[in-house]
Amino acid sequence: MKHIGKIAIVAAMIGAVCVALMLFGARLGLWQPITGFGLYRSALTPLGAVILGLGLLALALHLIRKETAGAVMGGVAALVGTACLVPLAAATLNPPMRAAPIHDISTDTVNPPRFEVLDASRAGASNTLDHGGPELAAAQAAAYPDIAPLTTALAPDAAYQRALTLAQDMGWEIVAADSSRHRIEATARTPVFYFADDVVVVVTPQDTGSRIDMRGVSRVGRSDQGVNAARIRDFQHRFGQ
């Protein structure tokens, strides 16, 4: 037990690296996003509990022995362990609202924009790009009634160029940009875990301007946790600024 403080701080450092890899390992190309997410859900809490336990043990023993350096290392380790347990505590005290079990969101659920370049070969995809039809439309209307097409006074060419610029500014990976047909296909990724959502934007002429439709489909998971709806809202808000 003489070196329990050192053991605790080393465990905390290793734990911090492990958590970083859970969150950003997919971005580094180590695995698919779902792997990092699975590790986060299954390993974060026990990892935090072990580090917290070691830290508290080291803190107590070194305080009894009046060994300041060891006590400090134990305290730091305990803080790292506590940080790992914060998500569990937050979810317990304030359970998040359960998102609708859908992952395909479109501003037009009657004639949803179709993907023409992105297909089933996209990396890590287990969800299809085929729209779920009336059943999905009803589920989306119940969960996200505000999602609707965006209308603008801009002419189609100008609206398309603004949409393309916004897509680039939002960090999407542009897969296809067809200026003649006013279509954009892209892949957007979440900052944490690096989940991929495929996006299509279509601009159509209107009597007094243009209509912009957008659709986002998550590659994995039954639910997208509201990410695609939030992205559509963000895009439309930015477009209107």
Rank of each mutant, 00 (worst) to 15 (best):
V50I: 15
A158Y: 06
H3F: 12
G133K: 09
I105H: 01
F195E: 07
F193H: 02
A16G: 15
A148Y: 03
T45G: 01
A91P: 03
Y194T: 12
A26H: 06
L47V: 01
R238H: 06
D104N: 01
C84I: 09
A100E: 00
A137K: 06
D234A: 15
R181K: 13
V10R: 11
A71H: 00
Q225E: 14
A230L: 11
G221H: 04
T107S: 01
G124Y: 00
R211N: 10
A20F: 12
T208E: 14
P191T: 03
T45W: 10
H3Y: 15
V220N: 07
M170V: 07
T190D: 07
T165R: 15
I212L: 06
I34Y: 13
S179W: 07
R222K: 15
T109M: 09
L118N: 02
D207N: 13
Q225F: 15
V220E: 11
D169P: 04
T68V: 15
V50N: 00
P95E: 08
L164I: 01
V192C: 04
V80Y: 11
I51E: 00
V72D: 06
I51D: 00
L59C: 05
T151C: 08
P95I: 07
G29W: 01
Q140I: 11
S179P: 10
P156K: 10
G216A: 15
R122G: 08
M73H: 05
A60T: 12
A26P: 00
S126R: 13
V72M: 10
L30M: 10
N94Y: 11
T109W: 05
V19S: 04
A100I: 07
P96W: 04
A176F: 09
G36I: 04
V80D: 05
T152L: 05
R211G: 08
F193R: 08
G15V: 00
R41M: 14
G38A: 05
A49F: 11
A143F: 01
R181F: 06
E116T: 15
D234L: 14
P95M: 06
I4L: 13
C84S: 09
D108V: 02
A229L: 07
L59I: 08
P113G: 02
V220Y: 10
Q206R: 12
A58L: 08
A11V: 04
A26S: 12
R189A: 10
W172E: 10
V202T: 13
F193W: 04
L56Y: 03
D157E: 13
V19H: 03
R27D: 07
A26I: 10
R231N: 04
G209C: 02
A230R: 13
I102E: 04
S179Y: 07
A60V: 15
D119Y: 03
G216H: 13
V202W: 03
T35N: 10
V203F: 00
R238E: 14
S180F: 09
D213I: 15
D197Y: 10
A186E: 00
R189N: 09
V175N: 02
L63W: 12
A125C: 07
H182I: 13
V217K: 05
S180N: 13
F115Q: 03
G216T: 07
A142Y: 12
I14W: 09
E185G: 02
I51Y: 04
L79F: 13
I147S: 02
G74Q: 02
I4D: 05
D119A: 05
L88E: 14
C18E: 14
M22W: 05
V175M: 08
E185K: 09
T45H: 08
L129D: 04
A77L: 05
